[in-house]
Computed example of a mutant assay.
Amino acid sequence: MMIQGGRYQDRQVLAPSSLQAMFSPQWVYDGHNGDTCGQTLLTYGLSEFFVDGTGPARCCRTKAVDLWGHTGQAFGLLSGLFVRPGTGSGFAYVMNGEALAEDDDPRSAGRFSRNYIWEENVMDGLCRLIDGL
């Protein structure tokens, strides 16, 4: 089970069964059953999605690191929270003030994934720090 079985400072915050449901596939793209947001959401739990370390939404440029998490975007804010299954490690980021319009300027596009260039840079650095990658 990930995230210390739902415990924080000796208190049960989430039931282990809730975590299991959040980080287990509830929907899997079969080629026709939904919108994948540019092939980035292919497996979805309860508000968390699986990031295949070799897929188009990958977070690390040179290593295949599988993660579960969720990104956010609103009013100039880009954010994400990701955990690495079975390791107890992960990362979170929050940023704003990007120099370019995210969707309207081709310079915003990532170089190795379908994430924005700023997310790629931040996630790649954080991804390499978890578990000494």
Score class of each variant (00 low, 15 high):
residue 46 L to C: 04
residue 47 S to R: 10
residue 75 F to R: 13
residue 29 Y to M: 01
residue 117 I to K: 06
residue 58 R to P: 02
residue 80 G to E: 10
residue 62 T to H: 13
residue 21 A to F: 09
residue 119 E to A: 15
residue 90 G to M: 11
residue 4 Q to P: 00
residue 96 N to C: 12
residue 119 E to P: 00
residue 4 Q to R: 13
residue 74 A to I: 14
residue 90 G to S: 09
residue 23 F to Y: 12
residue 105 D to V: 02
residue 1 M to E: 14
residue 117 I to T: 03
residue 95 M to I: 10
residue 29 Y to A: 00
residue 83 V to S: 11
residue 20 Q to C: 05
residue 19 L to Y: 00
residue 20 Q to P: 00
residue 94 V to S: 11
residue 26 Q to I: 05
residue 109 A to K: 15
residue 87 T to P: 06
residue 85 P to F: 02
residue 49 F to M: 11
residue 62 T to R: 09
residue 32 H to D: 07
residue 64 A to W: 00
residue 75 F to L: 13
residue 56 P to Q: 14
residue 100 L to V: 15
residue 82 F to A: 07
residue 63 K to Y: 08
residue 39 Q to C: 04
residue 15 A to T: 05
residue 39 Q to I: 00
residue 48 E to C: 14
residue 66 D to V: 08
residue 40 T to K: 09
residue 16 P to N: 01
residue 56 P to E: 10
residue 21 A to D: 10
residue 2 M to H: 06
residue 71 T to M: 10
residue 116 Y to M: 05
residue 131 D to M: 12
residue 38 G to R: 02
residue 105 D to Y: 02
residue 99 A to N: 11
residue 54 T to S: 14
residue 65 V to R: 11
residue 108 S to A: 15
residue 122 V to R: 00
residue 104 D to Y: 10
residue 98 E to T: 11
residue 113 S to E: 06
residue 123 M to L: 06
residue 108 S to Q: 08
residue 92 A to V: 13
residue 26 Q to G: 13
residue 79 S to K: 06
residue 59 C to A: 12
residue 40 T to D: 02
residue 92 A to N: 05
residue 107 R to Y: 01
residue 117 I to M: 00
residue 63 K to P: 00
residue 128 R to M: 10
residue 3 I to R: 08
residue 114 R to W: 03
residue 54 T to W: 00
residue 115 N to I: 01
residue 59 C to Q: 13
residue 99 A to F: 02
residue 70 H to Y: 09
residue 84 R to H: 14
residue 50 F to M: 02
residue 80 G to K: 10
residue 25 P to T: 05
residue 3 I to L: 15
residue 109 A to D: 10
residue 73 Q to F: 06
residue 13 V to Y: 12
residue 113 S to H: 08
residue 85 P to M: 04
residue 73 Q to G: 14
residue 75 F to T: 10
residue 28 V to N: 04
residue 35 D to T: 02
residue 23 F to R: 01
residue 85 P to W: 03
residue 42 L to E: 06
residue 116 Y to L: 13
residue 96 N to K: 11
residue 7 R to P: 00
residue 107 R to A: 15
residue 13 V to C: 13
residue 104 D to G: 15
residue 72 G to S: 08
residue 52 D to E: 08
residue 10 D to S: 13
residue 125 G to N: 09
residue 91 F to G: 05
residue 91 F to C: 06
residue 20 Q to V: 03
residue 54 T to K: 13
residue 3 I to F: 14
residue 27 W to D: 05
residue 62 T to S: 12
residue 61 R to T: 01
residue 37 C to A: 12
residue 36 T to E: 04
residue 127 C to F: 07
residue 119 E to T: 14
residue 75 F to Q: 13
residue 76 G to L: 10
residue 16 P to L: 04
residue 22 M to A: 14
residue 95 M to L: 15
residue 66 D to T: 08
residue 111 R to F: 03
residue 113 S to C: 09
residue 82 F to D: 04
residue 110 G to W: 03
residue 113 S to K: 05
residue 4 Q to L: 12
residue 42 L to C: 02
residue 14 L to K: 05
residue 84 R to E: 15
residue 77 L to I: 15
residue 48 E to V: 07
